[in-house]
């Protein structure tokens, strides 16, 4: 009896996985179609891939998207780490909880609200929409996740180490670079990675603050998809799937590198499940 139920459960899991991957596989399958539609497969071709690489506008957008992702996650990692150390140094519980609640506002806000309110903000201070406004927005919505990734590492750190370092004559800078930073590096890396993927994945916020001249991949796909099916998008999504696969493997190794097992599963939509919100 036990054996039978075990089999049923495996079947259920397989079905769920099939469901999760079917649309992605569907996209990949038709990226090799030479028929030009996503419904009838007429023959195998690489044409859609060469079309992607020959489309200089699209390649430019891919590079822009990567640039925004790299820069925004780097800036978010720096500001977020400093912020996490700051929050860690606050000893009053009330102030700390207030800070953390404020930190989480952007994590729980719907994208549309973030996008619309940032659009008002940029217009209000007279900031021109374009690359910089997109970059600043991405930095802004990535900072809280970095804080959430770094803070547990700080709390796990043995505070007597810092005292000992001070007693032995280290100045603040030495304490930071020799004691604190090495201890929290896995958290910073994880935060950087999450920020990077948020940036790559974002559509709604970018859509609001991008203006006319600048475009990221998600925005471009949206406008192309509204015009109908083009197999170039399929080819591009196949490439992006491979890229995501590489990133996941990379992230997996960073997680493995992280010493603490307990926080292994802290990812997912904007870290919400990790936070469980006060």
């Amino acid at each position: 009896m036990a054996k039978k139920t075990f089999k049923w459960s495996n079947l259920y899991l397989l079905l769920v996985f099939a469901l999760l991957y079917a649309p992605i596989m569907y996209l990949i399958f038709y990226s090799f179609n030479d028929g030009g539609t996503m419904t009838s497969f007429t023959g195998f071709t690489w044409d859609n891939y060469t079309a992607v690489f020959e489309d200089s506008r699209l390649m430019g957008i891919v590079l822009d998207t990567l640039l925004v992702a790299l820069l925004s996650s780097l800036l978010a990692a720096i500001i977020g780490t400093l912020g996490a150390i700051g929050v860690y140094l606050v000893k009053q519980r009330k102030t700390r909880n207030t800070l953390l609640s404020m930190n989480n506002i952007l994590l729980v806000s719907p994208d549309v609200i973030i996008g619309a309110s940032f659009l008002i903000l940029f217009t209000f201070i007279g900031f021109r929409l374009g690359f910089t406004s997109v970059l600043l927005s991405h930095v802004a919505f990535s900072i809280p996740i970095v804080v959430l990734m770094v803070l547990p590492k700080l709390q796990e750190m043995n505070p007597t180490m810092i005292k000992a370092a001070h007693d032995l004559g280290a100045n603040n800078w030495q304490v930071l670079t020799k004691i604190v930073l090495p201890a929290i590096t896995p958290g910073i890396l994880a935060g950087y990675f999450m920020a990077f993927t948020y940036s790559l994945d974002d559509f709604a916020v970018t859509f609001f603050v991008t203006g006319n001249g600048f475009s990221t991949l998600a925005v471009e796909i949206y406008s192309r998809a509204r015009q109908g099916v083009s197999l170039e998008i399929n080819a591009l999504s196949t490439l992006m799937f491979l890229f995501a696969l590489i990133l996941v493997v990379g992230y997996y190794f960073i997680q493995q590198y992280s010493i603490n097992k307990k926080h292994k599963q802290q990812h997912g939509r904007k870290g919400k499940e990790a936070v469980t919100l006060l």
Binding site: P23, V229, M240, L247
Partner: peptide, 14 residues
């Protein structure tokens, strides 16, 4: 979840 949401939506158009 690491595949852009728009690509997944686009797949369903087909």
């Amino acid at each position: 979840t690491w595949i852009n949401l728009l690509l997944k939506a686009y797949a369903f158009i087909g």
